[in-house]
Design a protein around this nucleic acid. Structure first.
Lengths: 161, 161
DNA sequence: GTTATCTTGATGCGCTTGCATCTATGTGCT
DNA sequence: AGCACATAGATGCAAGCGCATCAAGATAAC
């Protein structure tokens, strides 16, 4: 049986999981330490704030979350007073989401914490050239993204899970 | 606010999460399609099989899972008949885990599926030199692992046998 | 030898997730 | 209009997770 993956494949896989987990854990810990909501909320708040207003369906696509997860995440955000739902004209089943002022405030307070963790977990560990190389290498693993130079990832601003 | 992370940092972060999620999803889907247990089980079975027998505490460290998660994972593996617990001589509170024959069989049936998904998700997308570069770049993000050339990551190696 | 402390692992509780299904509204066909 | 089908989003249920705490055995101190 030597159709086993090459050793470097295994190494990439192991490190991919570990690095991702480590950094995510770092971010979550930092947020929690500040009494802020979890990482997942940031992504949603960011998407909504960016767009001004969004349909949940758009979140489902943008955040790569299953539909029911969006439904419940939005519910929690609304409960927390960060997001408001309003009916959409012309489609009785749909809804439109936008941030409340409090939602914007919370997103804004989360960002420096998030950013700090990213700088510590990623930026501080890589030379600029290494960073570019790593970004490119990771890009090759992605389904949609192929072109080497300038690549259009969907939603690659600061979001995440 | 220009203590924001550099754009390439954001790109790395986004792609790290996306690539990791994508590949993990691919593997899980392949396993499920074959009626096999989830990815997490593989890691545990593999660790136990490698060592011959393990203390749960060792799994906790090796798999980077919280202690209670190990406790419950092991419980499920035992329920499924894949792992057996036995008391450890000299320490009445501890236990030792080892695979049942069925556990070995399941692990062995999981491997080709797992490996196939890894080849499709990783190996097929990278030239050997690119793979090395990526592995190295990811290594820089990890906490413990630093040495560039030969690195001893804790986990995932191949398994063939 | 009794008491405090540490270690190993389990567990009760509440929340989240995954899966399947449901409701309600919209669209298209005849 | 009437009926099938598609789309947007919610939800019941079972399983899993995180957190805090617990029980039982081991160690150390006095």
């Amino acid at each position: 049986m030597t159709d086993d993956p090459h050793a470097s494949t295994m190494l990439i896989w192991a490190r991919l999981m570990r690095a991702g987990g480590q950094i995510a854990a770092r971010i979550e810990a930092a947020l929690k330490a500040e009494g802020l909501p979890p990482l997942g909320w940031y992504a949603a708040l960011w998407e909504i704030e960016q767009a001004g207003s969004v349909r949940p369906l758009a979140l489902h696509e943008g955040l790569l979350l299953p539909q029911y997860a969006v439904s419940r995440l939005v519910e929690r955000l609304v409960q927390a007073g960060l997001v408001a739902r309003s009916a959409v004209a012309g489609d009785g089943r749909g809804q439109v989401l936008h941030l409340t002022p409090e939602g914007k405030a919370v997103r804004a307070r989360m960002w420096p914490v998030y950013a700090g963790a990213l700088r510590a977990g990623i930026e501080a560990r890589l030379q600029p050239a290494q960073a570019l190389g790593l970004a490119r290498g990771l890009g090759r693993l992605l389904d949609g993204v192929v072109r080497d130079g300038a690549v259009r990832d969907g939603a690659v601003r600061d979001s995440s899970t």
